[in-house]
Amino acid sequence: MSRQPTNAAPDATTTAAPQTAPEKRVLHDCRNAFAETLIELAEADPTLVAVCNDSVGSSKLEGFQQRWPERLVNVGIAEQNLVGVGAGLANGGLLPFVCAAASFLTGRALEQIKTDVAYSDANVKLCGISSGMAYGELGATHHSIEDFAWLRAIANLAVIAPADPEETRQAVRAAAAHRGPVFLRLSRMGVPDVVPEGYTFEIGRAVRLREGSDVTLIANGTLVHRALDAAELLATEGIEARVINLPTVRPLDGAEILAAARDTGAIVTAEEHQVQGGLGSAVAEVVVSHQPVPMKILGVPGVFAPTGSAAYLLDRFGMSARGIAEAATEVIRRKRAAS
């Protein structure tokens, strides 16, 4: 195994193609699962409305709009009003799914999310589309890699990042069924199917996708399949990594995190987000308080990302399968050194 640092130089990891998945995988844009599910739900529930900010296309709402033009509330390019209107629609007895590019929805309307939605307990479903670095080459203005930190600090708001189409479908249904504010973080970056047959998503529940006793890899969203690939790589080296999909960043499944700390004694987290304040921080808060073990938090290391596709940037910031595997060997080394 190479000893290359996890924040590898660009020339070491410039290929956008998966480095550790030689077989051809079908990659999915989870926005399609989102849009199809929204239409299914809207068929059954006449109170469901979609609200957007001139983002009909990017939110994949064309089908919804064609079917129910009057139930698609487009406020134009005005995110503060977008979220306020969503809260008002909920007050008026409707079930609004408020859809906008994640970076603008969260950054531009953060106070509306806090005050009008979460603090007011409005039954609004916020859908942050093309989250993370999905807009890759468009640059840091369009990246949403601060949203976990911002939103998980807001009380009474569920924050969910599904990993694949099936989990997206279930998360959208769960959000609709849940009475209260929800933020769904939905990428457009292609991902393979990762959740197993018969999988059941629940808000606030983490799911073990692979058993292992040497180290635990915790990821969500677009990083889950990379973590699974990392576990495969580690297995070839005789390391058994547990892999946990943690779609709900708030409320957190503390029991599953503590079980991982207790059973494996070393944790790596990986997320399409800044290392500050996101999934890794949430996990660390639990671990440090109850079961301290060596940890490594992988994410964007406190910088605005340079130009490149999301896949390129994830690789560059040490979140290729290889990079995650290297982080795992590092925490295992620290675990052994401490024992």
Binding site: E70, G92, A122
Partner: peptide, 25 residues
């Protein structure tokens, strides 16, 4: 009390949503 206010400029957008809801319903 219908919606929490305090930071300014929040009431009118929420009221627009309410009025739109009445229209849709």
């Amino acid at each position: 009390v219908e919606t929490n206010t305090g930071p300014l400029g929040h009431g009118l957008p929420v009221a627009v949503g309410m009025a739109k809801a009445a229209k849709l319903r």
